[in-house]
C-alpha cells in the first residue's frame, strides 16, 4: 500500500464516520439528552474537518480524493441514547485504529497530523462512555 493509498483508505473511513455521526445526531434529542447531543455535534465537526483535511492531503499527494458513497450502513436498532452513544464510541475506537495505520505509512507533517487525530479520538472515547485502554487502536500489542 502506497502512502497515497493509505490516505485514500483513511478518507474512505472518514466519509463513513461523517455520515454515521450525522445519522446518530438526527436520532438524538438536543433537549432530552443535551450532553450526548453536544458530544455528537463535536464528533461530527471533528470528523468533517478531518475528512476535509484528508481531501487536501490526497490532492497534495497527487491523487483524486475518493468520493463518499451515497449511504453507509448504520445499525437501525441504535435508537435509544445508550445505543447511539455506543455507536459513536465504536466510530472513535475504529478511528484510532485507522489513524495508527496512517501513522505507520506516513512521515513528517502528515504523521504529526495523524497522531494528533489518533490522540483526539482516543481521548474522545471517554466522553462517549469509553474507558482508558493500554493499547487503543492496537489491541494486538497487549
Amino acid at each position: 500500500m502506497s502512502d497515497l493509498d493509505a490516505l485514500q483508505a483513511t478518507l474512505t473511513d472518514e466519509h463513513a464516520a461523517v455520515y454515521t455521526y450525522g445519522v446518530l445526531g438526527a436520532r438524538t434529542s438536543q433537549s432530552a439528552t443535551p450532553v450526548l447531543y453536544d458530544a455528537l455535534v463535536a464528533g461530527y465537526r471533528r470528523h468533517r474537518a478531518r475528512r476535509d483535511q484528508l481531501r487536501v492531503l490526497v490532492g497534495d499527494a497527487g491523487g483524486d480524493p475518493v468520493v463518499a458513497a451515497p449511504a453507509y450502513e448504520v445499525d437501525g436498532r441504535a435508537l435509544r441514547s445508550s445505543d447511539v452513544q455506543a455507536a459513536a464510541l465504536a466510530i472513535e475506537v475504529a478511528s484510532v485504529e485507522v489513524m495508527l495505520a496512517l501513522v505507520a505509512r506516513s512521515t513528517g507533517s502528515v504523521r504529526e497530523w495523524a497522531v494528533t487525530e489518533a490522540v483526539w479520538s482516543a481521548a474522545w472515547q471517554l466522553e462517549l462512555g469509553g474507558t482508558a485502554q493500554t493499547w487503543p487502536g492496537a489491541p494486538e500489542l497487549g
Binding site: 484510532v96 505507520a104 490522540v119 481521548a123 482508558a132 487503543p136
Partner: peptide, 20 residues
Amino acid sequence: GDLARVLAGVAASTAQHAAA
C-alpha cells in the same frame, strides 16, 4: 513506521488516562 505506530498507541493510551 511500525515503531511510530507503537508510539502513537502509547500516546493514545496516555491521552485516555490523562482524560480519565
